[in-house]
Nucleic acid binder design. Structure first.
Lengths: 147, 147
DNA sequence: CCGTATCCGACCGGATACTG
DNA sequence: CAGTATCCGGTCGGATACGG
């Protein structure tokens, strides 16, 4: 896909009191869905975002990430790192010293993505309790149909 | 977490020519990462976004979704629908007619999320080709170390 | 029309052990 | 320090068949 500006076509802006999205033209949804899906797939897996968020604040070494992204295994750290590098979101720099030193740095592209992740984080923050409530309510009425 | 406004703390805005994210205070990353992770987990799975995007443009029936979200199986449609309903992102309305009719509608919360997804979609659109290039380049030099 | 139930393969991801 | 290799269980998700 070329560099055509704002190729996404959907109307954004001003959904303060959301009623209904204006519509965007039927199979445009599909193109958008596909695109978003591809983003989410790159960034999916439990660990990619944690790593990206860490590296957004400066170069990080392998072991630093292993400690910062808590709960991650060596294996998953390596795999996720490789994928992020492959997609051009992280650059890997090896310093041929002894002991070896490797730094992972977020690319400009990744730093832009970081912006979107912050947007997402804000949404999550706003609705976290609503979602939690919805869950307990749903589970309650599922287990306890009429009570 | 209560309703404190802008609890995310990280500095946003103005990363036109991204150099480095200012930093946000060490373990604030973790809280942000966790939050974002939770969002992504709700919305992950290949199908949730496609469904959300469809329903953002008005109520949709089960079979309509089955056709619109192409490639989805009945099973996955049902499961994803249930999870989205459980999280309060979709409301399920049953019309006790014959034959039965069920409508799924995006909640205001989901329509706000839609905004974020559009942001993500824009990012993906901007960088789609860069990522594709990065991949072929990475794969090339992996298979073809020195040539 | 709108689902649920069952089977089953693919892959994600943790634990552990070994290497340059 | 910064990985790689192997094993192995759990979950995701497709295909198919059946039910209200």
């Amino acid at each position: 896909m070329s560099q055509r500006n704002s190729a996404v076509t959907v109307k954004v802006r001003a959904v303060e009191a959301p009623a209904e999205v204006p519509d965007a033209g039927s199979d445009d949804h599909e193109r958008t869905a596909c695109t978003v899906l591809q983003v989410l797939e790159r960034v999916s897996g439990k660990w990619a975002i944690g790593i990206l968020l860490e590296c957004a604040h400066g170069p990080r070494r392998f072991t630093e990430l292993e400690r910062a992204v808590r709960g991650i295994s060596r294996r998953m750290l390596t795999l996720t790192l490789r994928n992020l590098e492959r997609d051009g979101l992280l650059t890997r720099t090896v310093y041929p010293t002894v002991p070896p030193k490797v730094e992972y740095t977020a690319t400009p592209m990744a730093l832009e993505l970081y912006e979107s992740l912050v947007t997402l984080a804000k949404w999550a923050e706003r609705h976290r309790s609503s979602i939690a409530d919805a869950r307990v309510e749903y589970d309650r009425s599922a287990v306890d149909p009429v009570a």
